[in-house]
Amino acid sequence: MENLLEIKDLYVNYETDESVVHALNGFTLNVKKGETLGLVGETGAGKTTMCLSVLRLLPEGVSKVEGGSIQYDGKDVLSMNKSELRQMRGAQISMIFQDPMTSLNPVMRVGDQIKEVLSLHNPELSDKQKDERVDDILKLVGISPDRKDQFPHQFSGGMKQRVVIAMALVAEPQLLLADEPTTALDVTIQAQILALMKQLKEKFDSSMILITHDLGIVAEFCDSVAIVYAGEVIETGSIEQVFERTKNHPYTEGLFNCIPDLTSHAARLTPIPGYMADPTNLPTGCKFADRCGRCIDKCRQAAPEMVEVDPGHFVKCNQMEKGGSGL
C-alpha cells in the first residue's frame, strides 16, 4: 500500500529573542492509506509541532522549517502556495485539537461552525443540502440536530469535543490528525469518543494519526505506533511488533515499565530517570543518552541510525542490530 503521508527528515525550529528551540530534529514518519497510527511521546517531544507542520499552521514569524520534506499524496506540502494549502486544510487533512474548550469560536453557533467547512470545500452544495449534511454529521456524533443553533458554552466538554470531531469529519477528509483528543476529558467519555472516532474512520475510510501519551489507547485503537523523543521518531512498527516488548528502544522499554502492573507486588513504580533534553541546547549523539541505562561511548559521539530490527519495525538505537535481537 502506498504511503499517504511521508515526512522525511524534518527539522523545525522556534526562534525566540533569547534562544532557538529545536522542536523537530530529523523527524521521519510514514502513514499508509486507511492506517491508524498512534504517535506516542512525552510533553514537548514535538508531536503537536509535527501536526502543525503538516498543515503549515506553525505560528508565523517564530517558527522555521530548516530542512526535510513533507509529501502528502505525492504532493510537496512545504512548497504549496496559499490556495493549495487552503484546499488541503479541512478537506483532505483535518485536525482535531487537544482542548475542546478553546477550539471552538465562542461567539458563533456550532451549526454555523460546521457548515463553514462545507461552504469552503463543497461550494457546489446548496444551502439546504449543507444544512442536511450538518444535521447528518451531528447525528453521527451523537448530538441532536436541534442544538445546532446553540453556542459552544452551552455544551459540556465531551459534547464540545464531539462537535470538533463533527467539524473535522464533515468534509470527509482522507487524513485525520487527532492531537490528544481525549486528554481533556474524563475516562468514561474518553472511551465513547474513541469508539466514535474509530467508527467514523471506518465509515469514511480515512487514515488517522492519533497522538497520545497513553499506551493503553494505542494498543486498543491503533494499527501501528511511532514513539517520539526530543523531536525525532525513535521507534516505529506495528502494534504487535512493538507491544511484543522484545526488541524495543530503551525509552520505549522505560515507558512500558512505567505502567503499573496490578499483578505485581512492587513497592514503588519504575520511572525513567532524568528529564528530556533541553531543546535549546541539544547534545550531539543520542538525545536519550543521559537517561539510558545501556548507554555506551559510541552513543554520545554520534546520533544513532534507524535499524530495522524486524520487517517494518524500526528502532533508532546503537544497541540494535538489523534483524537481530536486543540485549
Binding site: 498543515l55 499552521l57 505560528p59 496559499k82 494549502l85 487552503r86 484546499q87 488541503m88 486544510r89 479541512g90 478537506a91 483535518s94 485536525m95 485539537f97 482542548d99 478553546t102 477550539s103 471552538l104 469560536n105 465562542p106 461567539v107 458563533m108 463553514e116 467547512v117 469552503l120 470545500h121 470538533v164 467539524m167
Partner: peptide, 27 residues
C-alpha cells in the same frame, strides 16, 4: 489571533482575511 479557535479556523481552510475578520475580530 493566538487562540486555539483561530487556529481551528485556519485549519478548516479559511482565507487569512476571513480568519481575521470573521473569527478573530468579532471576539
Amino acid at each position: 489571533i493566538r487562540s486555539d479557535y483561530v487556529r481551528t479556523a485556519r485549519a478548516k481552510g479559511n482565507k487569512e482575511s476571513t480568519v481575521i475578520v470573521k473569527h478573530a475580530l468579532r471576539n
